[in-house]
Computed example of a mutant assay.
Amino acid sequence: MSDTAVYGGAIDLERSKEEEDDDDYDDDEEEDTSPEVTAQSSPRPPLSANFEKDRHLLYLEMMYELLPYHYQSQEINRLTLAHFIISGLHFIGARHRVDKDLVANWVLSFQALPSNRVSLKKGEFYGFFGSRSSQFPVDENGDLTHNNSHLASTYCALAILKVIGYDLSTIDSESLLLSMKNLQQDDGSFMPIHTGGETDLRFVYCAAAISDMLGNWSGMDTEMAKNYILNCQSYDGGFGLIPGSESHGGATYCAIASLRLMGFIGDDLLSNDSGSSVIDSSLLLDWCLQRQASDGGFQGRTNKRSDTCYAFWIGAVLKLLGADAFIDKIALRQFLLTCQSKYGGFSKFPGALPDLYHSYYGYTAFSLLEEPGLSPLCPELGLPLLEASGI
């Protein structure tokens, strides 16, 4: 199973790190995270001055019923795509359009379960598989063979269940969290799967979000995770995916959201004594504010194009810092509307076709902007704010 690239709720959960290096890190190429972004030559539709809620509902309902065949290449990330659709429906006030029992049973069918307590000591991770193609049958002893459940898929599974109102206390969280400890490395980072893989801030965030949603932090050493995060803050104030790497909007979100979830930074950080903060919040604020470009959108890195998804990744960081008032919200809204498709959904860049990843983070961005009729956002989890469940 290939690693899914995660900026949190991953979160770019739709593509591998290798794919990310090939496209998002190249200003001259368009991202290819989904089939719908490929028609770059399509004429740009007339711009709307409004958030087209009804069109977004039709778009998500279509995706809920049947994904276009182009999404076959994303089959291994089926739970992730489902998260974007179902959580997206909640954002626009249409959670009732989802068959909750059917969805819950479907999601739970992807959970990897140990045959006995001894299995938990073998180093495998008993989370959730991303799709049927990564879910293998049990052997003659009742054990899973080639168990490749994944931290990103587990985040998405729990996010879906939480959004539809499923009682997460009924899940075998003990096995999940005990085995998740196997993924934490000596430097505090996390692997996404037990057989190896990249170790960076994306999976630290997944582990923190999983622990928070389950209300149980026994599956990770938070002090080690905190130290790893702090080692990822760059000289310019942003955070790279690994220590010493270039500051990136997605990595910065993973760092700040994880620290908030683990309780190492509190609300409205900038209003408190910055000298007592575990991070250089002033330098971080400066880096984040410089990411809003002249077109009103946010870029993920210095000298890159504005991109719909970074309205969430950077915007949510500013919200967590208590600094969202510094965002030019009128300009950001205007940029996002240029990425709104006449078919519903959002594209990465103006004039492109929509895809589920950018659509979801378009909804979260408009929620941050307090668009009327949208559910409020829980910025540290990247999910709709669910008052009944405490997020």
Rank of each mutant, 00 (worst) to 15 (best):
K53M: 04
A208G: 07
L168G: 06
L321C: 01
G362P: 12
D236G: 14
L320G: 00
R44F: 03
K162C: 10
S234H: 07
I171W: 09
G250P: 15
L79R: 03
V163E: 09
Q111M: 08
Y357L: 09
G362E: 04
I314C: 02
R95E: 14
E174V: 04
D212N: 14
M262C: 13
V163R: 02
E19M: 11
T145G: 03
F349T: 06
S347P: 14
F366I: 11
Q40G: 09
M1P: 15
P384H: 06
S48Y: 10
S375A: 09
L270I: 03
Y310T: 05
A209E: 02
G390V: 15
E174I: 06
D307V: 08
S175N: 07
L214F: 10
G263T: 09
P372Q: 02
L58V: 07
S276E: 11
S247D: 05
T80N: 07
K100L: 00
I85M: 02
L79A: 04
K181V: 07
E246Y: 00
K181A: 12
A255H: 11
L285T: 08
E371W: 02
L158H: 08
A255N: 13
F239C: 03
A293E: 11
S109T: 01
H248G: 00
L79D: 05
G373D: 03
P35W: 00
M62T: 13
F264P: 06
Y310N: 12
A5H: 12
L241Y: 10
Y64K: 15
Q340I: 05
M262H: 01
F125Q: 08
A207N: 07
G390S: 09
Q184K: 14
V107S: 02
E75F: 10
I330V: 15
F128K: 13
D268R: 15
F91N: 04
A5C: 09
S173H: 12
M220F: 05
S306P: 02
F129R: 06
S34D: 11
D187W: 13
D273K: 07
A82T: 12
G215H: 05
W287Y: 09
P243Y: 09
K319V: 05
K226H: 03
D355N: 10
A325W: 15
G88R: 06
M180I: 06
M220L: 15
Q135S: 07
S87A: 13
G263Q: 14
A157H: 03
E140L: 08
L318E: 00
G345M: 03
P43N: 05
S247Y: 13
